[in-house]
Design a protein around this nucleic acid. Structure first.
Length: 884
RNA sequence: GGGAGCAUAGCUCAGCUGGUUUAGAGCAUCUGCCCUACAAGCAGAGGGUCGGGGGUCCGAAUCCCUCUACUCCCACCA
């Protein structure tokens, strides 16, 4: 069978993925082996695969496949998140196209649409993950809104409520006027935004509600809220304004009388020193309002439009109103001036709408105790962050955490299990039946139809924080005393979590809290934080910028293995990834290299009569040792999550050591067969290399592993043991490095002198060669004749170089440029002299000799001796040349 | 405003406990090669005052201080 000269992933990948699925290779059940567990960061059910997922899930898959080959019972649990705001807004948009709004339909109808939509569009991302080769245990696929998962969430709510951790209260919350819901502090992104600073005249009232001719200037970025002002505040220490004490001012345009108050919150040096206090529309003003007992006038509705209480501009959107009121204020003479201004403005992470601080009744979870536990989990080292710099960020947050606003004014999600009695009292129970029983204790006359369930649903993260528990056992969350089921006892705690740092608080911290609370154990030991994938010029990849390639296109163009490698090559933990398609090309090229090396080996005929040549014997011996040496460092890299390093070492081992050196040495002459001994070693090496590469490149390695020989039905490389580090002799490795130096030196001479590789050379050696060196040099550098000599005859006709301390001379009669040689040798001499001087300076320093460890001093002495020897060589060569 | 991180070749990064490092890799660049595995390749070469300054030490890319640049996180300056 003739293999094509280029590897074609498209014919290979689907075949093997189907094979893996057919044989149930990804599925795990508890058994006597050591478990290795990863839960996927559940992507949004409506999401599609982007480069961030590719990075994240490739790492997840590499870790899973490596653990599997290490003999562990590996289980990677996949699933999706219902993502309440994101999904609901997609459904709302879909309905809008049909001319339907949420107001037109009931909650039940809406949810029906939502579920239909989820069935049709959801889980697409999970199918895409298969294209990447993800070895998820698909039988365990979970969705955060599966009925049993929802049950766990509700139980958790009831548990924390009864524990006294969940309360309901009126608070200033972050209102998202586009999503029409409150969002948590963590879902608000502050961005510096260009705005205007309006300086407004507030006239002093004459006491009868009429303006006097005196006024003060108040600076604000939100003139549309002046109708909601409850006071103007000055700092009590601000002498400029003491004359205002006890006075009242009039709100421009509506002439409403409001008091001057004094509060030290106001900064004397900022703005004009006069602050309009608008308790309904600003968090700080709300606090001031509480201190001074100010009335609250809420003039903005849920959609961000001015309401009746505004008295003017009723029904206008807040930003339109801002522009219009500026004109009105100018016309009325209340506008002193307008300045350009940049201020931080909060945006909703999901909808990008400007957040409106708004008073409303919401449910909160107390964070104080939970965050203390979660901080201790990390500080004690029971949970490690990779890289560990994120501990600082984490600590900072955990020490300054606010109660978690867990209610959302949405329909898509877990509905809060609070049931209201007609009198407004409420009970919290997991089911309506239990709620009724509890309600009857308050008021025996209550019937089921009197109970009204809370309209709100829970924050999405209130379900995903249970993920590492609930994917295995949906009964345990909310029931810390329950006996965990078989799966949970076996798989929990999971081992590693791979995720992006931007959800460290949203998700990672809260999973730790839930784990501590319900399991008494952290949900994972290591958190590997990947960077953000950016484009070449450093911009975050985003849909709106259009700079994010579709991973599926890349897979069909280059193959999944190439995409995986391309992403990993440039990704050290915690650093952002600068994505460039050329990295994937490099991955594709590597696939091709592996493919072609196999074609070479496959093409060899074994000649049973042929005995192993010396050069092959040394190559085999060397590669055995080299392989173990590299494997050892690869294992260390994996253990420290240095995946790109592990990959790079593997890449170089295969490309440079195996292909460029090893195969070139043992390659039989054209038309001749290969000896059995060398062939067997070569095949064994190749198989070990495939195993080593498999976690990062699952498809091509499976393909070639099967192509090597016919395997038993149902066998797979993915369950082959990862190669084990054997004892190796670093002397053999360093000897070979010297051999490489000599080969490189001769090749360099050929290059300089423009000599064809086909033209055999001879060499004269002054000094010693490592064992087995010459046969290798002879083959790779095409050296036909070797001679050992302390004296080199005709100095003018040789080109020389030094490998280690051995001098190599290549006789090239008629081709040697005398002056060039002299110059080259003088350069080398110069360099060695400088080097020697620096080493001698060190050795002459008695402090160094006295203080430095013996080994270090010994090393310097060796450097000195080598330098002396090289200088000696150069000088004798110069002498020979000058004699000419 | 507070905190953290980072700064090493054109680019992306290693360099772990200070001493085989007058600093390494991959990519890119340049030169020469279609040699019967691979031009998606082979062989060779060039490229760095380790951000600036100061300090500790026998010895600093590595530890300390300081300045500068960038990045991220947190934060209510209207």
């Amino acid at each position: 069978m003739e293999l094509p000269s280029k590897y074609d992933p498209s014919t290979v990948e689907d075949k093997w993925y189907a094979y893996w699925i057919k044989n149930d290779f990804f599925h795990s059940e508890p058994n006597g082996k050591q478990p290795y567990t990863i839960v996927i960061p559940p992507p949004n059910v409506t999401g599609i695969l982007h480069m961030g997922h590719v990075l994240n899930d490739t790492i997840n898959d590499v870790l899973t496949r490596k653990a599997r080959m290490d003999g562990k019972n590996a289980c990677w649990v996949p699933g999706t998140d219902h993502a309440s705001i994101a999904t609901e807004s997609k459904v709302v948009a879909m309905l809008k196209e049909k001319g339907i709004t949420k107001d037109d339909i009931s909650r039940e109808e809406f949810l029906k649409y939502a579920w239909d939509w989820k069935e049709e569009h959801g889980n697409k991302i999970l199918k895409q993950l298969r294209k990447m080769g993800a070895s998820c245990d698909w039988e365990r696929t979970k969705f955060t809104m599966d009925p049993d998962m929802t049950e766990a969430v509700i139980n958790t709510f009831v548990y924390f409520y009864k524990k006294g951790f969940i309360y309901r209260g009126v608070r200033m919350v972050n209102w998202d006027p586009a999503g029409l819901t409150a969002v948590s502090d963590e879902e608000v992104v502050h961005k510096d935004t260009k705005s205007k600073f309006y300086h407004l005249r507030y006239y002093i009232s004459d006491g009868q509600g009429h303006p006097t001719d005196k006024y003060i200037i108040v600076a604000t970025t939100r003139p549309e809220t002046i109708m909601a002002d409850a006071a103007v505040s000055i700092n009590p220490d601000d002498e400029r304004y003491h004359w205002l004490r006890g006075k009242k001012v009039l709100i421009p345009l509506i002439d409403k009388e409001i008091p001057i108050i004094e509060d030290s919150y106001v900064e004397i040096g900022f703005g004009t020193g006069c602050l309009k206090v608008t308790p309904a529309h600003d968090v700080n003003d709300y606090e001031i309002g509480l201190r001074h007992n100010l009335p609250i006038t809420d003039i903005i509705d849920d959609h961000g439009k001015l309401n009746d209480k505004a008295r003017i501009l009723v029904g206008e959107d807040r930003f339109v109103a801002r522009k219009k009121i500026a004109v009105m204020l100018e016309e009325s003479g209340n506008l002193e001036k307008v300045e350009d201004y940049i201020s931080p403005v909060g945006y909703s992470e999901r909808t990008n709408a400007v957040i409106e601080p708004k008073l409303s009744t919401q449910w909160f979870l107390k964070m104080e105790d939970l965050s203390k536990m979660a901080l201790e989990s990390v500080e004690s080292g029971r949970v490690k962050f990779i890289p560990d710099k994120y501990i600082n960020t984490y600590r900072h947050w955990m020490e300054d955490v606010h109660d978690w606003c867990i209610s959302r004014q949405l329909w898509w999600g877990q509905r809060i299990p609070a049931y209201y009695l007609p009198d407004g009292k409420y009970v919290v129970e997991a089911t309506k039946e239990e709620a009724l029983a509890a309600a009857k204790e308050i008021d025996p006359s209550v019937s089921a139809s009197d109970l009204k369930q809370d309209e709100d649903v829970l924050d999405t993260w209130f379900s995903s924080w249970l993920w590492p528990i609930s994917v295995f056992d949906t009964n345990k969350a909310g029931h810390p005393d329950a006996v965990p089921n078989k799966d949970l006892s076996y798989y929990y705690p999971t081992n590693d979590l791979v995720t992006a740092p931007d959800i460290l608080f949203f998700w990672v911290a809260r999973m730790i809290m839930a784990g501590d609370e319900f399991m008494g154990k952290e949900p994972f030991s290591n958190v590997y934080l990947t960077g953000i994938v950016r484009d070449k010029s450093g911009r975050k990849m985003s849909k709106t910028l259009g700079n994010s390639p579709d991973p599926l296109d890349l897979i069909s163009k280059y193959g999944a293995d190439a995409v995986r490698i391309g992403m990993l090559l440039c990704s050290s933990a915690g650093n952002d990834i600068f994505y460039d398609e050329s990295q994937i090309e490099q991955g594709r090229n590597f696939c091709n290299k592996i493919w072609n090396s196999f074609r070479l080996i496959k093409g060899w005929e074994i000649d049973e009569k042929s005995i192993q040549p010396d050069c092959s014997a040394s190559a085999v011996k060397w590669f055995e040792n080299k392989f173990s040496q590299v494997l050892e460092s690869v294992e260390e890299d994996y253990s420290k999550f240095r995946i790109s390093d592990a990959l790079m070492s593997t890449y170089r081992l295969f490309r440079d050591d195996y292909c460029s050196w090893y195969l070139e040495i043992i390659k039989p002459e054209y038309g001749k067969g290969i000896d059995r001994k060398t062939y067997d070693s070569t095949i064994a090496f190749f198989e070990n290399l495939l195993k080593m590469i498999h976690p990062v490149m699952p498809f091509i390695t499976e393909e070639l592993w099967h192509a090597m020989e016919s395997r038993e039905e149902g066998s797979t490389i993915m369950y082959q043991p990862f190669p084990k580090v054997e004892n190796y002799d670093s002397g053999i490795i360093s000897d070979f490095a010297k051999t490489e130096d000599i080969v490189n030196g001769i090749r360099s001479v050929r290059q300089q002198k423009n000599l064809s590789p086909k033209q055999p050379l001879s060499m004269i050696v002054k000094g010693s060669l490592p064992e087995g060196c010459f046969p290798v040099v002879a083959k790779l550098a095409n050296v036909g004749k070797i001679e050992f000599s302390e004296k080199v005859g005709n100095a003018a006709d040789v080109i020389s170089f030094i490998a280690g301390t051995t001098e190599i001379f290549i006789p090239l009669s008629g081709l040697v440029d005398h002056d060039e040689e002299v110059a080259k040798i003088k350069d080398g001499l110069e360099y060695q002299k400088k080097f020697l001087a620096s080493v001698r300076k060190k050795l002459a320093n008695s402090s160094f000799v006295d203080h430095a460890p013996e080994a270090v001093v010994e090393l310097e002495r060796k450097k000195e001796a080598d330098a002396v020897s090289r200088i000696d060589s150069y000088e004798s060569q110069l002498k020979l040349l000058s004699e000419k």
